[in-house]
């Protein structure tokens, strides 16, 4: 099958490559770019393990062709680590509040939570539960995930206030 040229910004870096028109973004990320944080859990958009951030929106990369997002700015969980290599706020709060167990849903969860907190920096528990409902977790029962996201919101607010 003929291939097309794709150009993306992934986690702040310019990348390019060749892909078939039918190549899914999740496969391009995982197999061509070796960005294996986003996972494949269902291939039908239900579980959210493949969630990435595309131009400021949470997107399930298992049902997106890489051709659809040519020239896009993509962030994966790998891009949410601090520049000095330390854990980002969400990553740290997920660890602090035991918001993960097997870790398979975690990259999608954290990437979605990252966008949720951009959309709504002051979420209630209900906002978090609704905003995260596209991401399934089989291990945690969500209670600690909600706690981790809520704590992240508080910490990000405090950081913002300190910076202002």
């Amino acid at each position: 099958m003929s291939k097309m040229h794709v150009k993306l910004t992934v986690n702040g870096k310019q990348v390019e490559g060749l892909a078939e028109p039918r190549t899914l973004l999740i496969h391009f990320l995982r197999e061509d770019l070796k960005i294996t944080g986003p996972h494949i859990g269902c291939e039908t958009s239900h579980c959210g393990a493949c969630t990435v951030d595309i131009d400021g929106k949470s997107v399930k990369s298992c049902t997106t062709f890489v051709a659809q997002v040519n020239e896009a700015d993509i962030t994966t969980v790998e891009g949410l680590t601090n520049d000095d290599g330390s854990l980002g706020v969400l990553q740290e709060m997920f660890r602090e509040h035991h918001g993960l167990q097997c870790g398979f849903c975690t990259p999608g969860m954290i990437t979605r939570a990252h966008r949720l907190l951009q959309e709504n920096p002051n979420p209630t528990e209900e906002d978090i539960r609704f905003g995260m409902a596209g991401n399934l977790c089989r291990c945690t029962g969500y209670q600690n995930i909600v706690k981790a996201i809520s704590a992240s919101a508080d910490m990000l607010k405090a950081q913002k206030e300190a910076a202002e």
Binding site: T36, E78, L87, Q91, R95, T106, I110
Partner: peptide, 19 residues
């Protein structure tokens, strides 16, 4: 005790079979 596994998992640095 906080989990030692989580430093890898929260950064997408787990190593699952499809990786």
């Amino acid at each position: 005790r906080k989990r030692v596994e989580d430093v890898r998992f929260t950064q997408g640095k787990g190593n699952y079979v499809d990786d």
